[in-house]
Amino acid sequence: MSIKKNLALSDTGFVFNPSTGDSYSVNPIGLEILRMLKENKKDEDIKKHLLATYQADFETIEKDYYDFVKGLEQLKLTENNG
């Protein structure tokens, strides 16, 4: 999975897609994931990091991560052949 490299991420949780002009808001954990995706971190590594950082079991993180990434796809924020 990789996201559009030109996405502008702000500390306030504001995300701007310069190619479409759309903007988005994310919560802190969502922002953290977007940053890691932008750095080309692998899905497995991101999930591992989340598991180590947050009070949640792997199953929950796996499920929510999948859902979040699907959401990114739906919002067309991912690279086409990522």
Partner: peptide, 13 residues
Amino acid sequence: KRQQYERPLIQRI
């Protein structure tokens, strides 16, 4: 200590 977990969210403005 691990942080409080919340599902990641993204919403179009």
